[in-house]
Design a protein around this nucleic acid. Structure first.
Length: 464
DNA sequence: TGAAATGTTGGGGCG
DNA sequence: ACGCCCCAACATTTC
């Protein structure tokens, strides 16, 4: 008896998983007869400029890697709901494999492909656990982080898969794609210098960064809140583009979960679980990408009109008059990234001090962050605004001066990004409006005490 | 992964 | 020695 080898032909669809190590959709197809690796750029109405910059280089490196594995990465532009069926028709391939993302069901993609007779292989490749597999006793999704993380810690993530060494050949007919340059991901006017100085995209650099972070993870818990030092992992852009597998990262740090490193490892794993929590929320509630999870917030009286618009612009430019806020906004603009502690401060300032809709903050982050992640971003903003899952209560309003004194005591971070204040003492730098020396730096755009009381008024009367 | 207001305690200066 | 006040330090409550 000779076993019949069924013909297996697959399109593998790369999205936020631009890697070959621990990539389940790739492991699925290594024994196929032929495989078409594709990436499809969706041109939305909003730009994602900084993460597009990153994507350009990620795709370049991924294409080189795939070439080394004996295949070729094909690039297309358009709506995957149109492109994938077209590719199936042209190649005669009737199977598409990918790693699942939170919005897959709501986008109508799966059902649309299946009604066209296309077989869909969906893998768990972007999260620690299969999306929505962590459920409460009654089968609903968790809305509070602590019980979610406790439930998650009772299960182990699947072990990382071996790195793919070789890919099957391309199909006989290869639909023509576009070149990387035709994706038009790089800026036309050069605003990307600062970003290029700080970041090195690519799976190889992701691995180097993991090794570097692991060597410093013992200090994570103590140093992660101080933006002047490199105390955080800085792995978020790699995770967002999937050049790094979150499961691999989990196990790399878990190996160090002992002795002096224990607290650092466990604190960091908790952060990875916050990401996981955000992915699960978005998966269960895809509308929360731009709608509040708590529906009563649809009626919230956010400020709007000309004044609010001007205030938003001052925030975006880093000209609020609060040094820690402006340092963060300028770090973001110049490097495509902002320290996590400072993200919380600037977000609180926008939604509580200025009463501007969190959506505007989320859109600005979408435009400017190299690590822009649709799940983490909407989750984080809703958390800050108080309308999301396990959100900050309405009365939790960060004092930008207190936070600055606490987490940037010497003003080192502030002076790095707000050089106008370099001449002030470490005491004065948090409150330049009280300093003797005059600087060209603006006065606070809104008084803290006034803004705090206004926010408490608006939020508490809204609750009634 | 708050901040500010309010309450409590205890040491030290001083008459 | 004693009571009184001040106030820093810490704790609790409220928003």
């Amino acid at each position: 008896m000779v076993a019949i080898k069924h013909e297996k032909r697959v399109i593998v669809w790369f999205r936020s998983d631009l890697r070959i190590s621990d990539n389940p959709m790739l492991s699925d197809v290594v024994d196929a007869n032929d495989v078409l690796p594709v990436f499809i750029l969706e041109r939305g109405t909003t730009l994602a400029r900084a993460s597009d910059w990153w994507l350009h280089f990620s795709l370049k490196k991924l294409a080189e890697t795939i070439a080394r594995l004996g295949s070729r990465l094909l690039l297309y532009v358009g709506d995957p709901r149109d492109i994938l069926p077209q590719l199936c028709e042209e190649t005669g391939i009737m199977t598409v494999a990918w790693n699942r993302l939170p919005m897959d069901e709501s986008s109508g993609l799966i059902s649309s492909l299946q009604t066209q007779g296309i077989d869909v292989h969906v893998h768990n490749g972007c999260t620690l656990f299969p999306l929505r597999s962590i459920k409460t006793g009654s089968g609903t999704f968790y809305q509070v982080f602590t019980p979610f993380s406790q439930a998650a810690l009772k299960v182990s993530p699947e072990l990382p898969l071996p790195t793919v060494k070789k890919l099957p050949p391309l199909p006989p007919v290869v639909p023509s794609g576009v070149s990387l340059d035709e994706l038009d991901l790089l800026p036309k006017i050069s605003w990307d210098q600062g970003i290029a100085e700080v970041w090195r995209p690519g799976e190889d650099n992701a691995q180097k960064s993991v090794a570097k972070f692991c060597a410093a993870v013992a200090a994570y818990k103590a140093e992660r809140d101080f933006p002047a030092v490199v105390g955080t992992s800085r792995l978020s852009p790699y995770l967002r583009h999937g050049e790094l597998s979150v499961r691999q990262l989990w196990y790399e740090v878990a190996r160090l979960d002992t002795g002096a490193s224990r607290a650092g490892v466990e604190t960091y794993q908790k952060e990875l679980l916050w990401r996981e929590f955000a992915y699960n929320i978005l998966s269960a509630r895809p509308d929360t990408v731009d709608q509040p999870l708590r529906p009563e917030f649809k009626q919230f009286p956010w400020r709007s009109g000309t004044n609010a618009k001007q205030d938003l612009q001052r925030w975006q430019k880093g000209m609020t008059g609060y040094p820690i806020v402006d340092a963060g906004m300028r770090e973001l603009w110049h490097t495509g990234w902002m320290h996590n502690r400072v993200r919380m401060i600037v977000a609180s300032f926008l939604v509580k001090h200025l009463l501007i809709h969190w959506r505007h903050g989320a859109e600005w982050f979408q435009d400017t962050l190299v690590d822009f992640d649709i799940a983490s971003n909407s989750f984080g903003w809703q958390w800050s605004a108080g309308c999301g899952a396990d959100a900050a209560p309405f009365f939790r309003i960060f004092n930008p001066v207190t936070q600055s004194e606490k987490f940037d005591p010497d003003g080192e971070y502030i002076k790095r990004w707000v050089p106008e204040l370099a001449g002030l003492t470490k005491k004065e730098v948090h409150t330049p409006w009280l300093a003797k020396k005059k600087t060209p730096y603006p006065a606070p755009m809104v008084d803290h005490k006034f803004a705090r009381e206004r926010a408490l008024d608006v939020f508490s009367s809204f609750r009634r």
